[in-house]
Design a protein around this nucleic acid. Sequence first.
DNA 1: GCCGTTTTCGGCCCGACTGTTTTCAGTCG
Length: 580
Amino acid sequence: MARRNEELSLLLENIAKLLALKSESPFRIRAYEEAARSISAMAEDIEDLHRAGRLTDIAGVGSSIGAKLGEYLDTGRSSYYEGLKREVSVEAADLLDVPSIGPARAKLVHERLGISTVAELERAAREHRLQGLPGFGEKLEDRIAREAARVAQRTGRMLLGMALPAAEEVVRLLRDRPAVLEINPAGSIRRMKETIGDIDLLVASNRPGEVMDAFTTLPIAREVLARGPTRSSILTRDNLQIDLRVIKPDEYGSALQYFTGSKDHNIALRQVAINRGWKLSEYGLFDAAGKRLAGRTEEEVYRALGMDWMPPELRESRGELEAALGHQLPDLVALKAVRGDLHVHSDWSDGYDPPERMVEAAIARGYQYLALTDHSRSLGVAGGLSIERVRQQRRLVDQLNQRYAPFRVLHGTEVDILPSGDLDYPDDVLAQFDLVAASVHSAFGQPRERMTERILRALRNPYVAVLSHPTGRLLLRRPEYEVDVEAVLQAAAQQGVALEVDGQPDRLDLNDLWARRARDVGVLLVCNSDAHSARQLELVRYAVATARRGWVEPRTVLNTLPIKRLLAHLSRRGRKRRAA
DNA sequence: GCCGTTTTCGGCCCGACTGTTTTCAGTCG
């Protein structure tokens, strides 16, 4: 099913924005914002909670917000939101997307100048019509003009797969400078969230001036947006904004913790400190007398609060604090635990590199095995393989196995699940593959029941070992298709089919929340790159990161198995299922 | 608007920066 949590979260965020424009009580506004965050972050499906009459169990949702959510879920509308929209210009809420524009300034320009859109704001700033307003000077106006122009052309959030390499590039360029003692990405990048708003870097140094000089003069810096003693921002050639902060070495741990977030995690963590009569900030952990208890390292901060240090991927306020307090954090799957990739394409279908190069790249990564899974015949646009081509490829795979032994090449297929639920090859062809992964690439618009039955039918095929990118979403472009994922999880558990966590940055499918649910249900997962070139084998890191965000441990990840045990697993379950 | 092993009222994470001011409001993370 398409989870509606984001939709409801957005509704509350929009209400919060309109309330801000009305200069409502900041606490009321924050209540809506916090409820929105809870709903977006929680693992449960909000529709399930609503059916169970448990909406007010959600942190930050009381009777009033609960009733509004209920109304929206029942009727698809919110009379409260619609009333607000009549009262306040909805477009004006977009002004809040412009940095340096908050509720007060948005309200002011809206009421005094009738400005409702970002484009109007930009024009007004360029025509110097803002300067007369109270609190607006030349510099602010200039800044608004630039920021509004950027917002007008940008798309908002970016993929982790775009943000992380940019951040790592800056880390590489700065880490060997003498003034840089430590440097890390912080924020949602460090937590490996699937999309990123801002790229934040943290540096520990006693010589901030030198660090800022180095940062603002980097060759990749196209423009310096701000330069201060502790914080600077650049715009890269790729039009990405990167913020860098310099921290005193003694405070680096608490600062890294603080700027890594998530915000919800930090609020909850501060509460743990407060409960002990202490205070936690980015400068350290302090007792009631103001004595500093911790701050040099993150480990120190968490330990002083009675917890184990936890990987950033867990810090989403989804139970990790309780687990850390009870010393029961999961042993997360790590990239180095992956022994092979079970989903890659070669130039036989829509990949870029020939099978040999894919194999060599896999060997170079230290893998024991690789499954070539080119597309099946009906996927014409992707060069899907005819049955004859499948036979030819089998011979090539046999040769590759001789040539690269003991490395093991599995002859696989990413076979299309046709709209009927039939697979794109007959069983006698499927029987000849070492590994069959099935996936949906067509008829995305099928109604929920039909799509669900289509996928369940594919899962019942005894040759199918993996379901690839199970929900079909493309981040920032296309939502998941309508499918009862819970039913798919249950069927996969029952049939012993592994569900993929696809590492393509715009897929990350299953996502972290479904991966966690899969873990809880006892479904086997597989972290794949879905590489379409040798270079893309590295995308498996995003699959692993997504699984880690889902609390997944190595024992439930198929491709952490060494080759012998993997082959044993595939043949054992194959025999059992064909017998059944 | 939410919330409660101090509570059903009175708090709500907290500090820095910027630009505008001349002591502070607004914004941000």
